[in-house]
Amino acid sequence: MSLTEDPTPLGDTAFLEYTWPVVSSKVFEVGEVAPTRTLADVIEHRRSNRVLAPASLEQTVGALLFALRPRFWKEGDSLKRSRRPSLSAGALHPITVLLFQERAVFRLNAELSLLERLQFSDEVYSAWVSKCQSVLPEANGTFLMLVADMARPNSAYANSESLVWRDAGALLQTIALVAELFGLGFCPLGILGHEVVTELHSDGQLLAVGAAVIGLRPEARAADSNQ
């Protein structure tokens, strides 16, 4: 893979997706959007929030599903192209989101609206959360990690990695706007998480491409406690 060479389409070639170590799964619903919010309002009020409290799993997953789930699938397509809120090179959407919350690691399977609990060591979980908290000590929310499965991009493009990095930035921006739409706080982190990907034993197929935290802003938590 190269970040200096332009990507070149290869056509629709065969690929094998990574098999995630799922131990259990649960269906979640997409969260309801506040009808009074406009796009202009969301854009003007979006901020990076560095002081956060935990939101419920239902709130967090509901918002993330709104940001990530496919709205349209290309029928009969071998590369499973889809249309989603975030742009993606070739409509491939190779990035999945992992959630670190409640001493567990989850994968959001946006295609099936499933939250999948993954088999993960306590040591790697603790080390990753501690690393995130060292960056944002007052962010006590759900830590997110963006992981790209390179099988599809590599089957569609030569030198595909630059496209995946572009997708990661677009996805972070989309989640940031959706968090604001749902009244949640959000902040990207300047770390990647290669040590977490190593735990997944993918033989280089998975690539850590970003991290963030999502949760309740202080004013939202105060309003909830006063009700």
Rank of each mutant, 00 (worst) to 15 (best):
G190P: 06
A176C: 05
G193K: 03
K131T: 15
Q205H: 06
G183W: 08
S86K: 01
A179N: 05
S48N: 15
L114T: 12
P94S: 13
E58Y: 07
M145C: 10
S225Y: 13
R107Y: 08
Y157I: 05
D77S: 10
P218L: 08
L10F: 12
F15P: 01
S113M: 06
G204R: 08
L79F: 09
T60I: 02
L112Y: 13
S126M: 12
V129A: 02
L98K: 04
T96L: 01
A158S: 14
W128A: 05
A170W: 01
V178L: 03
Q173G: 14
S78N: 12
T8W: 00
V30Q: 14
V196G: 09
L79H: 11
S155W: 06
A67Y: 00
Q227F: 13
A211Y: 04
W20D: 07
N159P: 01
V51I: 15
L177T: 05
A223K: 15
T13L: 15
W165E: 02
L184Y: 02
R217P: 00
H93D: 02
Q173Y: 08
D12H: 12
H93Q: 03
I95L: 10
K80I: 04
A127R: 15
T38Y: 12
E29R: 11
G215V: 03
S160M: 06
T19V: 15
S82Q: 10
G193N: 07
D203V: 00
V209C: 13
F100T: 04
N159C: 10
P85H: 09
K26D: 08
V30S: 13
E32S: 13
T38N: 11
D224W: 14
V164H: 04
V22D: 12
S88M: 03
D149W: 04
F28Q: 06
S24Q: 13
F72K: 07
